[in-house]
């Protein structure tokens, strides 16, 4: 049970600061989640903290590989408009 940060990440450090498990750190290209430490915040908070502050749609995926903040959910612009 762990989330994953992908290349869309802009390395803003916000998730690192709010993670209750210190599971997030700067990787070579973008921030990374240590799957051994990530609990998806199940016992700590109603919402996963990293995904609640991340400003980038599609940067954090759940364990099925689906974005926790899908396109259009944060900035309000659907991808076809942004393209």
């Amino acid at each position: 049970m762990a989330f994953e940060i992908v290349a869309a990440c802009v390395s803003c450090t916000a998730c690192e600061m709010v993670c209750p498990n210190q599971a997030i750190s700067a990787g070579e290209l973008h921030f990374e989640i240590d799957p051994g430490l990530c609990t998806e915040c199940a016992e700590s908070y109603p919402d996963p903290q990293c995904a609640s502050i991340c400003p980038i749609e599609g940067a954090i995926l759940d364990e099925l590989g689906d974005p926790l903040n899908p396109p259009g959910s944060l900035i309000g612009i659907l991808p076809q408009v942004a393209a």
Binding site: C12, I53, P55
Partner: peptide, 16 residues
């Protein structure tokens, strides 16, 4: 100070 705690409609953190 790279992190932000709000989103403004005139800002996009992706474009640096």
């Amino acid at each position: 100070a790279p992190a932000c705690n709000i989103q403004c409609n005139y800002c996009n953190r992706k474009y640096d």
